[in-house]
């Protein structure tokens, strides 16, 4: 409802500007109002790309002063290392300095199966199958030993966590370590990969039939498993207002948090886009 209204009001304002130049002061305030609204919406979009800037979903772990200090540190770290936008299901390549390896740095390519943690403790898990051996590495996002984070394929999956890839056939988590980054058109929405994964037969690490997974093919279990899953399901929890209140951060607080760091994050994004354009220009000369 809201976007329709605003679009109408924009056209009205334009018409007003064209017809009566004397009615400027009134429309000026409207324009500024619209601008602030647009800015607010842009700021709210940050919650998808930068979820770790929001306070902990566990209410007892929140501490406003510490969070503010941590946010400053996070922005400072982001000026040193480019941490691009990514989601669970994206394919990343992480280069970290490693005092144990001969070359002193280590590159690992894999699909992001988990992203979580708040503030400086934000972390993600990459998974890949190398030499028919499934391997997972947990990285801390603001670890000073991280040298480079590249997004090779930016996409989302149907689920928030892809732990079920551990019990899936290995081809679903096999990615070439020499993969090239796929270029995306600027401003395009992040694509959702609707792939349905086939799991190995039981035994599994977790009871996947109870987790309402979208990205999994039919589990082919006997009927009793689904009966039990229905018995232990808690479908009323999504209506529990108190739980939702505890788990989420209200819009007002989110805008407050992100407006603090917005200018710095945006300037970082602009820098990244400039670098990307440079790369795009360099590429054809390499090929030719």
């Amino acid at each position: 409802m809201l976007p329709v209204l605003t679009r109408n009001s924009i056209t009205n304002v334009c018409k007003g500007l064209r017809r009566f130049s004397s009615a400027l002061p009134k429309s000026d305030t409207e324009v500024s109002k619209l601008k602030t609204e647009k800015l607010k919406r842009e700021i709210l979009e940050f919650r998808h790309a930068y979820p770790e800037f929001l306070p902990d979903p566990k209410i007892e772990f929140r501490n406003k002063i510490r969070e503010k200090l941590e946010r400053n540190d996070m922005v400072a770290r982001r000026t040193q290392v480019d941490i691009p936008e990514f989601y669970v299901g994206s394919i990343l390549a992480v280069t970290s300095s490693d005092r144990h390896s001969g070359g002193k740095s280590n590159r690992f390519v894999g699909i992001c199966i988990y992203r979580g943690g708040c503030g400086l403790r934000a972390e993600f898990i990459l998974r890949n199958v190398i030499d028919h051996q499934g391997i997972e590495v947990l990285y801390q996002m603001y670890d000073p030993s991280l040298q480079k984070v590249e997004v090779l394929r930016l996409e989302k999956r149907l689920d928030d966590k892809l732990y079920y890839l551990r019990d899936a056939l290995p081809e679903y988590s096999t990615f070439d370590p020499n993969m090239e980054a796929e270029l995306m058109p600027e401003g395009a929405p992040v694509p959702v990969n609707p792939i349905k994964v086939k799991l190995k037969p039981r035994p599994w690490l977790e009871r996947w039939e109870r987790q309402n997974l979208q990205g999994v093919q039919d589990l082919e279990l006997p009927e009793k498993f689904y009966i039990k899953a229905a018995q232990v399901a808690t479908p009323w929890e999504k209506y529990d207002l108190m739980k939702e209140y505890m788990r989420t951060i209200p819009v007002e607080e989110q805008t407050e948090i992100f407006s603090e760091v917005q200018s710095k994050l945006q300037s970082l994004e602009i820098d990244r886009k400039k670098l990307k354009r440079k790369r795009v220009i360099v590429k054809p000369t390499k090929l030719a």
Partner: peptide, 16 residues
């Protein structure tokens, strides 16, 4: 030389 158990950050965890 490789464990299923959860490991510290930057240390790989294996499927077997």
């Amino acid at each position: 030389v490789g464990l299923k158990q959860n490991q510290k950050p930057n240390v790989p965890k294996f499927d077997s």
